[in-house]
Design a binder for these strands. Structure first.
Lengths: 90, 90
DNA sequence: CGTTCACATCGACTTCAGTCGATGTGAAGA
DNA sequence: TCTTCACATCGACTGAAGTCGATGTGAACG
């Protein structure tokens, strides 16, 4: 769980998730994500790779473009795990 | 929000929160926490300080002992914020 | 008031993660 | 097939963060 939180504990990755989730059809092309962030293409690619490896997003190649989607169950599960600390016997 | 997640993205701090939440009356003395973790006293003190500064726990001095409590609203709010990424327009 | 105990702070080391320029890869188009 | 485009990977640098021994602090106890 610490590893999962560590993946999300980065402003660039949070912005990526936010941008992807807010995109049409809840998917986004890397070509649109790079200019939206103030970071270089390798940096964005790296963060997308980290999110994908952790299972928070899925990657689908279509021709030359790579499309990314958020995995909602993954986000919900982690969110509930965090919220569970508010109960005693957490 | 990235800062909040970064605070939780550490196995020692997660164990601290878990131990405190699972203690009687949902509070724990540092003297009990140090031996439960495999870390030195300064390290545990440092992590408790980080959790306190971020508002995830509160510290109360009673005599020579320091007692810690989880702030449930804080955990619940962050958990919901994470889970919100599972919705479109996150 | 000196001692002891619980805990915080300091200083230094080390590991890790974000960042970017340069380069590799693989698909599309001429 | 040669070029171009989109993206991944590599190598190197840098700043941040975890860790611990040593030391400071402040309350209890005699």
């Amino acid at each position: 769980m610490a590893g999962d939180l560590k993946v999300l504990a980065d402003p660039v990755r949070l912005r990526l998730l936010s941008l992807i989730a807010a995109s049409e059809a809840s998917e986004a092309c890397a070509c649109d994500l790079v200019p939206s962030l103030g970071r270089s293409q390798p940096t964005v690619s790296h963060h997308l790779s980290v999110l994908t490896a952790a299972g928070f997003v899925t990657r689908e190649q279509r021709g030359r473009w790579a499309w990314y989607r958020v995995v909602p169950e993954r986000m919900a599960a982690l969110g509930h795990a965090v919220a569970a600390f508010s109960d005693a016997r957490g």
